[in-house]
Amino acid sequence: MSIFNLIGDNGIVICNEENLSVDAALDITCSKLLEQGKVEASYLEAIKEKHKEIGAYYVLAPKIAMPHARPEDGVNKAALQVTVFKNGVDLESEDNGDVYFSITLAAMDSDSHIQTIMALAELFQNEDDVDAIIAAESKAEIIEILKKY
C-alpha cells in the first residue's frame, strides 16, 4: 500500500499560522484524522501526554516530525495525515530545530505498518522531495510527490 492510500485526498493540511504552541501544532497534525473518525480524541491526548513525559520523541530529523501513539490509544483505522507548517513550528526538539513537515501515523497494530514506515523512511531520506513538499503551494503538488512512495 502506498503512503498516499493511507492519506487520501482529505489527509493534507497546509498551515500558515505562526508562533503555534506545541499543543496547538499537535491539534493541527491530528485534525483530519479526528474529523474523519480515523482516530479518537484519546489518540491526540496520548501524543500530548507522551510529549510532556519525554519531550519531542516524534521529531525525527531537522524539519521532520512523525507524531504517533500506540494503536490502543484510539486508532479506528490505519491512516496518515500530512501537515506542512509553512512558517515552521517549535516542538521543543533541542537537536532538530523547527518542524515544517509532519506525518501523523495512526497504526492498527505493531506489525501492519512496517511497509508504511519503510516507505516513509525512503521519503524522509529524500531531501529534495521533503523540501518540495514544504515549498508546495497546493495539496495537488504534495499529492504528486507522495504518489512516488
Rank of each mutant, 00 (worst) to 15 (best):
G37D: 05
G37E: 08
G37Y: 08
G37K: 07
G37F: 06
K38F: 15
K38L: 06
K38H: 10
K38R: 10
V39L: 07
V39W: 11
V39R: 05
E40M: 09
E40P: 04
E40Y: 10
E40H: 11
A41R: 12
A41Q: 13
A41P: 11
S42F: 04
S42V: 04
Y43R: 01
L44W: 04
L44E: 05
L44T: 04
E45A: 09
E45P: 01
E45G: 01
E45N: 13
A46F: 09
A46E: 02
A46D: 11
A46C: 06
I47N: 08
I47D: 06
I47S: 04
I47E: 03
K48R: 12
K48F: 00
K48D: 03
K48G: 03
K48M: 02
E49Y: 08
E49G: 11
E49H: 07
E49R: 03
K50C: 12
K50I: 05
K50L: 12
K50R: 15
H51M: 09
H51R: 02
H51W: 15
H51T: 08
K52T: 10
K52P: 07
K52I: 01
K52M: 03
E53Y: 12
E53W: 10
E53D: 12
G55N: 05
G55C: 11
A56E: 00
A56H: 08
A56V: 04
A56Y: 04
Y57R: 01
Y57G: 02
Y57E: 07
Y57V: 03
Y58Q: 00
Y58A: 00
Y58P: 02
Y58I: 00
Y58G: 00
Y58E: 06
V59K: 03
V59H: 02
V59C: 06
V59N: 05
V59S: 00
L60C: 05
L60R: 01
L60S: 01
L60T: 01
A61Y: 14
A61D: 15
A61L: 11
A61E: 13
P62A: 10
P62C: 02
P62V: 02
P62I: 02
P62W: 01
P62N: 07
K63F: 07
K63M: 12
K63W: 09
K63G: 08
K63D: 11
I64H: 02
I64A: 00
I64F: 02
I64E: 03
I64C: 00
A65Y: 00
A65N: 04
A65E: 04
M66K: 11
M66G: 06
M66C: 10
M66E: 11
M66P: 10
M66H: 10
M66T: 10
P67E: 09
H68L: 01
H68T: 05
H68I: 06
H68Q: 11
H68V: 03
H68R: 02
H68W: 05
A69T: 06
P71C: 13
P71G: 15
P71W: 15
P71S: 13
P71Q: 14
E72A: 14
E72P: 13
D73F: 11
D73S: 14
D73H: 15
